[in-house]
Structures are given as structure tokens and as C-alpha cells.
Simulated scan of single mutants.
Amino acid sequence: MTIDWHAVITGFGTGITVSILYFVGLALSVRLALRLTHPVSVLLPSAALRIGLLLSAGWLVTDGGTSGWAFAGYTLAFFVVRFSATLMARIPRGKEAGCN
């Protein structure tokens, strides 16, 4: 079995881009929702849009799910960005970090 590196790199590059957009959208929608009395009015459409974008891009880059190597790269990219986003979310900011 040979690895199709072009497909892996294409999947990874697309996955990085789409995953960054996914988590930036999540952060923005949560910040906005925290200021509202009815947060579901922001969170539900945001989730639908972000999930749709993630799945559509994955479908396109993997040729409808037929390119396993592109899928592997796309999936790896999502988890790399997810890991980075969760690390960044744990970094204390503002008053919690001891800044006045």
C-alpha cells in the first residue's frame, strides 16, 4: 500500500483552514451568546453553519468520501487545530493571569 502524499497534504491543508474557521466561529458565537438573554438564538444557527461548513469541505476534499488519504489528512488537521484551540482556551487572561 502506497501513501498518496498529495491527497494527504491537500486534506491536511484544507482541514487546517476549515478547522480554524470552525473554532474561531465557535469562540465568537460563545462570546456573543454570553451577552444575550436567549443564547440559543445565536448558538444553534452558528453550530449548524459551522458543522455544515466542516462537513461540506470534508466532502469536497475527499471526493465524496472516496479518498481515504485525503480524509486522513483532513481528520488529522481537525484534531491538531482542536488540540491547539483547547490549549489556548486554558491560558489565563486578564485578571486571572495576575494582570491589573
Score class of each variant (00 low, 15 high):
residue 10 T to C: 13
residue 13 G to K: 01
residue 61 V to T: 04
residue 91 I to A: 09
residue 85 A to C: 04
residue 41 S to V: 12
residue 7 A to V: 01
residue 27 A to K: 11
residue 86 T to Q: 11
residue 53 L to M: 14
residue 36 L to M: 14
residue 82 R to E: 05
residue 87 L to S: 12
residue 57 A to C: 15
residue 39 P to Q: 08
residue 10 T to A: 15
residue 64 G to E: 03
residue 28 L to Y: 12
residue 59 W to R: 08
residue 93 R to K: 15
residue 77 A to H: 01
residue 83 F to R: 15
residue 66 T to A: 09
residue 33 A to K: 00
residue 41 S to G: 14
residue 21 L to R: 01
residue 90 R to M: 10
residue 4 D to C: 13
residue 96 E to R: 10
residue 91 I to N: 06
residue 15 G to D: 03
residue 7 A to Y: 00
residue 15 G to Q: 05
residue 9 I to L: 15
residue 14 T to D: 11
residue 83 F to W: 12
residue 72 A to M: 12
residue 35 R to F: 06
residue 39 P to I: 04
residue 62 T to C: 03
residue 70 A to Q: 00
residue 42 V to R: 03
residue 64 G to Q: 07
residue 9 I to N: 13
residue 93 R to Q: 13
residue 95 K to V: 04
residue 35 R to I: 08
residue 77 A to N: 05
residue 43 L to K: 06
residue 20 I to P: 05
residue 34 L to T: 07
residue 51 I to L: 14
residue 30 V to D: 13
residue 86 T to G: 08
residue 39 P to L: 02
residue 52 G to L: 08
residue 41 S to D: 13
residue 16 I to M: 14
residue 86 T to F: 10
residue 97 A to F: 01
residue 95 K to D: 08
residue 15 G to S: 14
residue 93 R to E: 10
residue 35 R to A: 11
residue 85 A to W: 01
residue 76 L to W: 02
residue 96 E to G: 04
residue 29 S to A: 15
residue 10 T to P: 06
residue 19 S to L: 00
residue 89 A to T: 06
residue 8 V to A: 04
residue 79 F to M: 06
residue 75 T to V: 10
residue 68 G to P: 00
residue 55 L to N: 05
residue 20 I to Y: 01
residue 50 R to M: 14
residue 6 H to A: 13
residue 34 L to I: 11
residue 72 A to T: 07
residue 26 L to W: 09
residue 64 G to M: 01
residue 63 D to L: 05
residue 70 A to Y: 02
residue 42 V to D: 04
residue 50 R to L: 14
residue 6 H to P: 09
residue 98 G to S: 07
residue 28 L to T: 12
residue 59 W to A: 09
residue 31 R to Y: 06
residue 23 F to R: 04
residue 38 H to F: 02
residue 55 L to C: 02
residue 99 C to V: 14
